[in-house]
Design a protein around this nucleic acid. Structure first.
Lengths: 166, 166
DNA sequence: TATTGTTATACTCTATAACTATA
DNA sequence: TATAGTTATAGAGTATAACAATA
């Protein structure tokens, strides 16, 4: 009795989808991140730490707009986060020599320390959780996830509403 | 020059982690869900649709607390969502015959239609996006994700702060 | 005329505390 | 004494609109 042909046809997708959604939620607002924040030694909220990590992962200073693009949030949000980070001595803004409208944001030594502590907390926890994984399985998962993200992004671009500027 | 031994050691994890986090965010607040919500035919916000989907995926009516557990949110949040769904004729609450404190929530026909429309939108979009995937690759990804989630949950339980009731 | 960033404001989603009714 | 749900309140996180400065 195939009462739900759509679900039958996409059973594999139906199985994967809620898992990713739930895993993403857990990673974004779970207790793990809370503890990693504490192990950073500074009392930062999550989005502020995400700014620090964006800078940590980048090759050099980033513009406000570039941070917003990498975090996938709106610009004004980053403006306020960076101001607060600057007030606390974790980041600093300098003029972009090539464009006087823009500012470049970079980590201070204290900011780099906080990012390192956070990263240490996250990676240590994951290293323990995934101690039983082979390098092969990890890289297979990484490759499939990358492909998934690429395909979803590409399809999102194809089906984007042209009325949006995005 | 191994300036970041921690990152070197967990390079695989470092590669997977931000991807999942970003993918989760995209799935939870992205444009895709917005369009799927529109294709449901009702004008619902995301968490309300998540309640409908929880009921759709369940075998039968669910208690408020069970919906909250599946959504991984606090109880009062679900109370309000369900009240609004009931007001709009998409769900209804009935007394649990076994426990007069509890209420069972179930979909109305209109609610089932809305959930079906939403699911159709989501699955159709994903089916197109992942048209190039073999069944093998999809099931491998599903299996690795399941294992990942299980291992993360287990380690979270081991490292949970005993002061929390959770 | 378009783009970078800022300021001010408003919205979405979720949590916590205090309470009621039943177990 | 503990549990299911409710009501009221508060918080985190993000978006949108309007603007200034520079390109």
């Amino acid at each position: 009795m195939p009462s739900n042909p759509l679900e039958d046809q996409f059973a594999d997708i139906m199985a994967v989808l809620p898992r990713i959604s739930r895993l993403g939620s857990s990673l974004n607002r779970g207790e793990l991140v809370q503890r990693a924040l504490e192990s950073s030694g500074v009392n930062l909220d999550r989005p502020s730490m995400t700014v620090l990590m964006s800078l940590r992962m980048a090759d050099g200073p980033l513009r406000i707009g570039e941070i917003a693009r990498r975090m996938e949030v709106a610009g004004p949000h980053v403006t306020r986060l960076v101001h607060e980070l600057e007030r606390r001595g974790l980041a600093k803004r300098v003029q972009d020599p090539d464009d006087k409208r823009a500012r470049l944001v970079e980590l201070t030594p204290a900011g780099a320390d906080a990012a390192a502590g956070y990263l240490h907390g996250i990676l240590g926890w994951f290293g323990e959780a995934l101690a039983g994984w082979s390098a092969d399985d990890l890289s297979t998962l990484g490759a499939l996830l990358s492909r998934l993200i690429d395909d979803l992004s590409a399809h999102a671009a194809r089906t984007a509403n042209p009325a949006d500027g995005r």
